[in-house]
Design a protein around this nucleic acid. Structure first.
Lengths: 205, 205
DNA sequence: GGCAAAACTCATAGCGTGTTGAGTTCACCT
DNA sequence: AGGTGAACTCAACACGCTATGAGTTTTGCC
């Protein structure tokens, strides 16, 4: 007869998990955390350890390290409707609303991590930089560019996005004071005003 | 008798190189290129291959992968006197002069690479992020902050730096159009004006 | 010329990686 | 109740990594 279910034991001997285990979700959550350090720096074994799962299960679910990575990138990139409403509504300046929406993402770890994974990995990983490029074009340049007036709308929208990215990196990833220490409102104010200059400026060159 | 010097052969059998070989410099140049992809993504073997050298020589010269990496970071961080003169001289706006100096670094591969290595690796490598933090504090916040007036000088100087970093990443690392395609002057103009707002604004919050 | 030290390569140790295949346990459907 | 397939673990393979130590060739100095 097989060993009776070792309910008190920390180790399982293989086989399907009982109950409502959301193992796939556990893996995704762990991967999100780990991949925030970049693709190459992350190991499948570390993700598996973090999710309390065998490494080979990751292969079975996602087809391997790269498949799991792409799943995380998809999380970061799925439609950001907040941009739409930040552009549409009318209290205060557009720049401040966009900045508030963007930094709001970074304040929540679960939403920050896939984003950070994309930014960090896009520096050298081809898949990640493709995803980032498409994201900036579709979500930032196209949407923001379509609501501002004047010439060079694409360039101005992109420069605003570049500023947001730089400020987020300094505050949340590089963690350089004083920017990383002050409350969110004190960041949104000046940054919102700066990108407002890009969005309402009539010319750039 | 030992094998006669195989001058025509592609392979050497060991031993010191003849002539004025700058092997140490070759290694540093190769490392600069490779480390621009991040610390973890770079292998000692790839650097050695790039420099046409045996991996163990890198260990002998620099003590290992990390020692070589620190040498590259030191390159990026050594005093940037261009900032001083950009702040001091007086034709045009300070913002534009700072932007021109900063982007000038990124236009030259040899000066960009250690910089890029620092930025990319600082996202997860403790050593690199320490170096970056010190660099921003000493070269940007302290120097720029000391010549501008009003309140919150440190924060405003840092936000200007954050914008420069973001724009450089989008243009030179992520390579997202249209910012990555237009000539330098058309970047320096608008970005210079934007950071000028930070540097001359009297208050931020 | 002779000799110590520096420069350089080779072989390999020791380890961690991503992935595979087989085996075990559970949930669902009829 | 029984069977099919999904979920899950275990052991191990093949590979690439950093680093070590010994051996070979050249330089610079006396």
């Amino acid at each position: 007869m097989p060993a009776s279910p070792p309910e008190h034991s920390g180790r399982r001997r293989g086989g399907r998990r009982g109950g409502d285990a959301d193992t796939r979700g556990d893996i995704l959550r762990a991967a999100r955390r780990q991949f925030a350090n970049g693709y190459e720096a992350t190991t499948v074994r570390a993700i598996a350890r973090d999710a309390a799962v065998d490494p080979s299960l990751i292969v079975q679910f996602f087809g391997g390290k790269e498949g799991l990575f792409r799943a995380i990138l998809d999380e970061a990139v799925r439609p950001h409707d907040g941009i739409e409403s930040a552009l549409a509504e009318g209290d205060g300046e557009v720049g401040a609303r966009l900045a508030a929406y963007f930094f709001g993402i970074w304040e929540d770890p679960a939403r920050r991590e896939p984003f950070q994974a994309m930014l960090v990995s896009a520096a050298f990983n081809e898949a990640a930089s493709d995803v980032l490029r498409d994201f900036v074009r579709a979500e930032v340049i196209a949407r923001v560019g379509s609501v501002i007036e004047g010439g060079d709308v694409e360039l101005r929208a992109e420069l605003a996005g570049a500023h947001l990215i730089g400020a987020a990196l300094v505050r949340y990833v590089y963690r350089i004071p004083p920017l990383c220490d002050i409350p969110l409102a004190e960041v949104v104010g000046p940054v919102g005003r700066a990108i407002q200059g890009y969005l309402t400026g009539t010319h750039v060159s």
